[in-house]
Structures are given as C-alpha cells and as structure tokens.
Amino acid sequence: MDRHNLRQFGVTPMSDTHICVGTISGSYGVTGELRIKSFCAVPEDIESYSPLTDERGDREFMLAILRPIKNGFAARLPEISTKEDADALRGTKLYARREQLPSLPDDEYYHADLIGLEVYDTGGALLGRVKTVQNHGADDLLELQLTGTSTTTFLPFTKSAVPTVDMATRRMVADPPEGILPTPKPETATGPQD
C-alpha cells in the first residue's frame, strides 16, 4: 500500500510530553454531563488516558464516558454537577501524557507530531511547513503553508508524494504530484522591447 499511516490525536501538542486527545464541547443535559469530542483513532480510548489535563496543565480531569452521542460522547467529571459548570468548560482541550499513548510502529505518525515539520522538495528547496493534517474520507492530506507566501496547498500524505519523514530532524521530503504546487508567474520584462 502506498500510504503513510496516521494516528489521529489533536491538532497541536501542548508540549513534547502532552498531546491533545479531545475537547469539551459543552454541557449535555442539565445534570452536569459534558459533550466530549475525541480525537483518538479509537474514540472511546480517550477515557483510558485519564487523568487528562487542560492546555496549561493546571487542571486534571478524571473523565468517565457514559454513552455515545452524535459527534462524540456524553461524559461525566466528578467535580461537575450542574449545566452551568459544564458549560463553563466549553472549548477546553483535553491532553494526555505522551507516554500513555500507544507506541507506533515505523512509518506510522501522530497527527500532532507532523504539525510544524519543514517540507523540502527532492532538490533540497524548502517548500513550506505542515500547517494541518486533514482527512475528508479518502487519503490523509498535509496542508502546507508555502514559504514566503500566505498561500497554502494540500499534499497527499502517501509514500510516493512524501517519500521521507524524519522526525529526528523535524523535516520531510516531498515529491508533489504535478499541479499541487502553484505555478510561478512568469516575470514580465520592464525594459524596452526590441
């Protein structure tokens, strides 16, 4: 198969030691239950990484999943007993310690680890940095912030388009398919014409 394998965990790491595994999206009902969105490859695994922390690491959350709901889970935290308390946590990102997460085989990566990697072409020219990792049902796509511009483009995260991922140096080598990168505009002559 010509695909790299990804484990979906969060958008950005809190640090090298913590990875975002989900978010609290508000209350569910009136008794303090929470709506939880899981970023885990196996969504219900988010509960097994408790205690989770907030983005700054100031608070710990002992998450208990109650049942699946549309786009996530209804869950409970021991210290939350009202709808207002649950709503106050809306938007809180939930982080797990990296050592709690499963170790990955070669050629498998966590989404969060790819964000920020420099992307070079096969000739060594810097193309840009990975801004996000997307998947809309087919292959994974790397959104590249192209160097020196505000332009982004999407690169398939396949072995043929991205033959090298070097986590030690935080860089990857890409051989983008034709048409992925914007075509440079030809320079116009500014001097007299013959």
Rank of each mutant, 00 (worst) to 15 (best):
R98H: 08
Q100K: 12
S38N: 07
L77M: 05
K83T: 01
L6Y: 04
S81A: 07
A75F: 00
L104D: 15
P43H: 04
L89N: 06
P78G: 11
P105Y: 00
M14K: 12
P43T: 10
K70A: 14
S25Q: 10
G22I: 05
E99C: 04
I24F: 04
G91E: 05
I80C: 09
S103I: 03
R98A: 10
T92W: 00
L6W: 03
K70V: 13
L66V: 08
T12V: 08
R97W: 06
E99N: 09
G10Q: 07
G32F: 02
R67G: 00
P102T: 07
E60Q: 15
Q8Y: 03
I19T: 06
D106G: 12
I69S: 11
A88R: 03
E33H: 09
T82N: 10
G72K: 05
V42Y: 07
S103V: 03
F61C: 09
E44M: 11
D87H: 00
R56W: 06
K37L: 12
L66E: 08
F61G: 07
N71R: 12
G91V: 09
F61D: 01
R98C: 04
R56M: 10
Y95W: 09
T53F: 02
I65W: 03
K70L: 13
A96L: 12
E47Y: 00
L94F: 02
A74Q: 05
A96W: 01
D87E: 15
F73D: 00
F9C: 15
Y95E: 05
Y49F: 15
L77K: 00
G26I: 03
Q100S: 10
Q8A: 14
F39Q: 11
D85S: 11
L63Y: 03
L52I: 00
E47N: 06
S25N: 14
D45L: 09
K83L: 00
S48W: 06
V21Y: 07
